Simulated assay, not measured.
Amino acid sequence: MKISTKDLVLCALFAAISCVLAQISIQLPFSPVPFTMQVMAVYLAGIILGAKKGFISQLVYVVLGAIGAPVFANFTGGVGAILGPAGGFIIAFPFMALIVGCVADKCRTKAYIIISMVLASVVCYVFGALWLVLVTKISFALAIKTAVLPFILFDMLKIIIVSIIGINIRSRIISGGLA
């Protein structure tokens, strides 16, 4: 895949947006996983950049954190952050952008894009809960109870917000011939 300078800049920009939104974070007392706004950046990357560039942007974000840049929630970074309780959620981000981007690339209807974000969220929940089980040795039911269920309502609100913003931006990019 040939990638232009413009595409590199866009991927870097969305990796940076992920870094910033990860810092809007609240550590819930009953969950080892913080509530953050970074999934909004993941969804936006998929919608606006499409599958390939969205995936790359989130992979860059994960790699930055893995090599020690303090880009994850609460300015954490390093392999330890990925190997920690929230690691499965972080690892899921590139795949979430890929899912949303695949749908945004092929069908531009709002309903399908919203469904793709819901599906991407489910993928994230599964990756995250399974990883949490492996790392903390808790039951899958407890992982769902502490690291998935408290986040569903807020993630649905994020999906609504992103669907309004992202779809409008993407349609303007396409209609302006910038895609």
Rank of each mutant, 00 (worst) to 15 (best):
V123D: 07
A129S: 15
T109E: 14
A111G: 13
S121V: 06
V122H: 07
L132M: 12
L134H: 08
I138F: 08
G128E: 00
V118T: 12
S116W: 02
Y112N: 14
F140H: 01
G128I: 00
S116P: 02
K145D: 09
L119D: 06
I114P: 01
A143K: 04
A120P: 10
F140W: 01
S116Y: 01
L142F: 07
V135F: 04
M117I: 08
T136C: 04
Y112S: 15
F140Q: 03
S116M: 09
V118P: 03
T146H: 06
S121Q: 15
K110D: 08
A120L: 13
S116Q: 09
W131S: 08
C124R: 08
K137C: 05
A143P: 07
I113Q: 09
Y125H: 07
F140G: 00
I138D: 08
F127S: 00
T146Y: 05
V135D: 03
L119W: 09
T136N: 08
W131R: 03
T146E: 13
M117T: 08
K137Y: 05
L132R: 05
K145E: 13
T109H: 12
W131E: 01
Y125F: 13
I115K: 09
V123G: 04
M117D: 06
F140I: 13
K137M: 07
I144G: 04
M117R: 12
S121K: 08
A141Y: 08
A120W: 06
L130F: 09
L142Q: 15
Y112Q: 14
V135W: 01
T136W: 03
Y112C: 14
I138Q: 13
V122Y: 11
V126Y: 11
V126S: 11
C124Q: 10
L142R: 13
K145S: 12
K110S: 12
I114W: 11
T109F: 09
W131F: 02
L130Y: 05
C124T: 04
A129D: 01
L142I: 08
S116V: 05
Y112W: 14
L132S: 04
V118W: 07
K110R: 13
L132P: 09
